[in-house]
């Protein structure tokens, strides 16, 4: 028999298997967008001031990196997101569990939270600036306000869906209050809680950029708003791409954590 590569059918099935890899088509999509971007700018159909070429963006990125600005901005933004979101996630967990397990607490807080949830967080910026000035605190609080209520209500829902059999079995095995919370409720909702955090982390990123656009001395959003003032679209693109990439890495991190910690749920 000749080697299998010579067999066109085999080759086809190899190609199909290759395309079936989860990331392959995604890369094809990204590459296509890059190509269209490149061709559009190379053809000269659009003014480079409005749409900088990929090369120009890359150079702007390198310049920002070499000057140390890029890292400084990224660190500033990431820090705000992490502090604000950690506060939100950390507080949402006990409150969400309390609301999910105790109907009285739920009836007390759910309408209130449901109401605040629909107030757009950026609309709080003027108030936050009046109360707390232009430092870090108002930005962190903005992220907190924008994600806490979603986090809490989604965790509450996850807790409400813990099958009563699982809790009641623990009761008939001699379990009581806190051990049931830590050994039954917590592991059961862990995958949904991680997913909730993953989803709401995206809002946290949106909000930190919005906050920085309004008032900041450093940060990825600040860099973008400065670049606008000088018509530096290439710098704006650098900012956008870095924001997207950092968000994506965080998202993948949560997915990885979920796969590792909650393999039973897949």
């Amino acid at each position: 028999m000749p080697p299998s590569e010579a067999d066109p059918l085999k080759r086809l099935s190899f190609l199909r298997r290759f395309l079936a890899q989860p990331w392959v088509l995604g890369l094809v999509g990204v590459a296509t967008a890059m190509l269209i971007w490149f061709l559009t700018t190379a053809s000269g159909a659009v003014d480079n001031l409005f749409l900088p070429s990929p090369q120009a963006v890359w150079q702007a990125g390198q310049a920002q990196w070499q000057s140390g600005l890029l890292l400084k901005d990224a660190v500033a933004s990431i820090q705000r997101v992490f502090i604000g979101f950690a506060l939100s996630a950390g507080l949402a967990l006990p409150v969400g569990i309390a609301m999910g397990t105790n109907p009285t607490i739920c009836r007390l807080l759910e309408p209130l939270m449901g109401l605040i949830r629909y107030m757009p967080a950026p609309a709080f910026i003027p108030l936050l600036i009046i109360y707390f000035g232009l430092e870090e605190l108002p930005k962190i609080l903005l992220i907190f306000i924008g994600t806490f209520f979603f986090n809490t209500l989604m965790i509450m829902d996850a807790v409400k869906f813990v099958p009563s059999e699982l809790v009641e079995t623990a009761l008939t095995l001699g379990g009581r209050g806190l051990p049931i919370l830590t050994r039954v409720v917590a592991p059961f909702v862990a995958p949904q809680v991680l997913d909730t955090y993953r989803i709401n982390m995206a809002s946290a990123w949106n909000l930190v950029i919005v906050a920085e656009l309004v008032a900041a001395t450093e940060g990825l959003g600040k860099r973008i708003s400065l670049a606008q003032r000088f018509l530096r679209t290439d710098d704006i693109f650098v900012g956008l791409i870095v924001i997207g990439l950092v968000g994506l890495v965080i998202d993948l991190g949560f997915r990885f954590l979920m796969r590792k910690a909650c393999s039973w749920a897949n």
Binding site: E165, E168, T169, L171, T172, V184, F188, C262, W264, A265
Partner: peptide, 19 residues
Amino acid sequence: RGPGADRGMVFQKYSLYPW
């Protein structure tokens, strides 16, 4: 007066801890 380990219970289904 309440549940306790002296009465073990087996439900029809969905009662094993999936993790």
